[in-house]
Amino acid sequence: MKLEVKELACGYGGRVQGVSFALEAGEIICLPGPNGSGKTTLLKTVLGLLPPLGGEVRLNGKRLNYRARRFLAQTMGYVPQNHIPPFPFRVLEVVLMGRTPHLSALASPRDEDLALARRLLRDLGIAHLEERPYTEVSGGERQLVLIARALAQCPRILLLDEPTASLDFGNQFMVLQNLRRLAASGLAVLMTTHFPDHALLYGHRVLLLRGGEVVGYGPPGEVITEESLARLYRVKARIVRVQLDGAGEARICIPLM
């Protein structure tokens, strides 16, 4: 499985220009960038929720047909930004909605769909929430429910819009660990994030956007540097290598006051 984005232009008035990258099964690409840099716009355009203005998106060498909504939904699972919907669907019902692209127009989910949804909830460690209203679980749990819903689509690519925003420290880690596990199982992951640290820790590659332009693309260690952070966020920061006991080395960013 290979997703190729070439010279993509999108956004209102073509605000995002000339984006190219390639995503393969098992990889995580992170999109850090300040607010308004065009991360979400890019994600939604790749999904076909916004019209592309130029360039192309190819799946396994074939140009994606953005009118084939059902095929798109079977290929790409979307985890939108955390929000609370108006109706209190139960957690299991929300996950079942991910089965929609595999159902015919008049059909409702069947027993095997139910079994799949339950298994996904169990894999993500939230089986006990099954009967709870989706509107009443915590932010981190809601994020996991949305990931379960996207996985229920049985996609080959998972696109996530700031999956760690508004989560506490423990929940951020839990969501990211789950994403790493999913990538290891053969899924391709494209995610936006507010935190350069997350890109350093979990990304196989990083695409840096600023003002709608790509200002860096490559392995996180090469792309996320003290210079690029200064340009991106207008913040002075140091990147520190940390020796982990028996787990190699990690890099983290520390802003300088």
């Binding site: 939604k44 999904l47 076909g48 929720l49 909504r69 059902r70 798109l72 939904a73 079977q74 790409m76 979307y78 939108p80 919907p85 108006p86 109706f87 669907f89 019902e93 909605m97 991910g98 929609t100 692209p101 159902l103 127009a105 008049l106 059909a107 409702s108 989910p109 689509q153």
Partner: peptide, 19 residues
């Protein structure tokens, strides 16, 4: 169409992303 009404109530973008 009652199952699809569920999905439609998630909102325009999510419903489209679900096919």
């Amino acid at each position: 169409l009652r199952w699809r009404l569920n999905v439609l109530s998630l909102g325009e973008e999510e419903a489209r992303a679900l096919g």
